[in-house]
Design a protein around this nucleic acid. Structure first.
Lengths: 278, 278
DNA sequence: TCAAAAGTGTTGGGAGTACACCCATGA
DNA sequence: TCATGGGTGTACTCCCAACACTTTTGA
């Protein structure tokens, strides 16, 4: 390939019109937890992770779903600001948890031009959401299975089901760093299947050593509800006593109680911010 | 700000010449471990982390140091390929550990034009290096101190000393995620002080749950040397017996010995790749 | 002889795992 | 009354920190 030895050379080529343009987008994996109501009056609602997707109606992605995203305006905004703008557009929320995930840039991810995408993860409390945005829809993660480094995911929004699978290939012998390769993906545009998996893994990982979950929780919650969110993120059952000990110092008990559930009422808790800054 | 409501609008503005261009670079934090020989024949060499920096001679960075980097050619390469190209240019090495760190994009980080930079971390074994590259120099990290979330770093290449400090400001109450803000930086171009700190923290974090260190080690090494590398990365003393137990199953003892050091000779070890893929 | 590092054994505490158990509720 | 989830106590295991100790070398 032609290499630009010096910056001058690059800048010269850059100014000439034959140099292919580059643009960037911020794409956001917006995650929350949804409740699936149960018919049994005694049972608690079943919780699930859910993802906000947007239906595209433009060529070449007609009828594909994708993560909310937008082009970066290089004159005035940073990628994070761009992400916040998209977030505001799609959820009408500001001031929510937002974290840069990874920058995706395979050359032909967008066939129209060279687009580099920086992906973000946003966590929101579903209760804060009010308005419904056109073309956007929440998909529950109804299946999330990993077997022999092949991950199988199924999303469902009540009308449509999206299924895709991703192969995780060990990239470095010294790390647990995997390269994600699409194994099957018919319904999501770009490489957004990979972004979703990377984001879910990031959150699953962080839940263990940060208080990140509380971004997805309402102000008051029971320990059972909190535990369910942990379980749905970690994708496994936890033991009650162990869980209570672990989160004990992250929450404060309030005098409020949740009753009328067909079983012993539960105390409502609040997130306790640490005063200790190490 | 002007917002592009639809992609069509964006693409139209994008094609018009008044739209400001955007370019990207891959910048690499190249880390290795250096030996500082001691005068006492008994004592082991003192090890230090070191960083490869490049001296700039162009306006507006004349006489500033920066991380090796290069502009992305949007026609033909990915950011990672671009990073590998830079790595080859600066160290003449291929096939070394390379990991995407973070994408930096504050609007005026480069006063000449809007440049978004994706930073990478590379780890190399110093012994593999042979050639000396013009304008590039290895700086030892001679001081790395954190007090009240203010990090003080001093680098030294034998002739020059670079000192900078960074304030870590808690960004989210629910995470240990900090925003890095330059407190003092006279010698490094761009925001490369922030990249260096972020990279060091990434590696320090990863050393605990991956085998990432072995990318910085020669094929044969003593446990003492390995421990020193851990200590220099973690920036704290470790207890011998504990350390040995922890890394016991990551290394294999060889029949080779290291002698002539003024004390009991030590067995040389090799990295043991795990057959177990979970 | 001795300083320096190599290398091993033993003990105790803290965190997580597992299980057993009791409590309170509303249909 | 009883299924369901709320809530607590305890015992066991495993990991790791801390310390004490022995071994081997070269000047």
């Amino acid at each position: 390939m032609t290499e630009y030895k010096t910056e001058e050379e690059f800048l010269k080529a850059y100014d000439s019109s034959e140099f292919e343009k580059l643009s960037m987008t911020s794409d956001i994996l917006i995650l929350s937890v949804s409740n699936q109501e149960t018919t049994n009056y005694r049972k608690n609602d079943r919780k699930m992770m859910s993802v906000l997707l947007v239906k595209r109606d433009d060529f070449p992605y007609k009828n594909k779903w994708c993560l909310p995203g937008g082009f970066l305006d290089p004159r005035k905004e940073t990628l994070e600001e761009c992400a916040k703008r998209v977030l505001k557009r799609e959820t009408n929320l500001s001031d929510i948890y937002l974290e840069q995930l990874y920058t995706y840039d395979s050359i032909n991810r967008d066939p129209r031009m060279r687009v580099v995408s920086t992906a973000f993860v946003a966590l929101i409390d579903r209760e804060k959401l009010t308005e419904k945005v056109e073309n956007a829809s929440w998909f529950d993660i109804v299946l999330y299975e990993e077997k022999d480094n092949l991950v199988d995911l199924t999303l469902d929004n009540g009308q449509e089901t999206i299924n895709f699978s991703i192969q995780k290939v060990l990239k470095e012998k010294t790390t647990d760093r995997y390269q994600f390769i699409t194994n099957k993906n018919n319904d999501l545009a770009f490489d957004h299947d990979l972004v979703i998996l990377a984001g879910l893994e990031r959150i699953r990982n962080k839940i263990n050593y940060t208080d990140i979950v509380f971004n997805m929780m309402p102000e008051y919650f029971t320990l059972g509800e909190l535990q369910q969110v942990y379980e749905v993120i970690l994708n496994k059952k936890l033991l009650d006593p162990a869980f209570r000990r672990i989160i004990a110092d992250k929450v404060v008990k309030t005098t409020k109680m949740k009753t009328g559930e067909g079983h012993r009422p539960s105390a409502l808790f609040k997130y306790k911010e640490h005063e200790k800054n190490k």
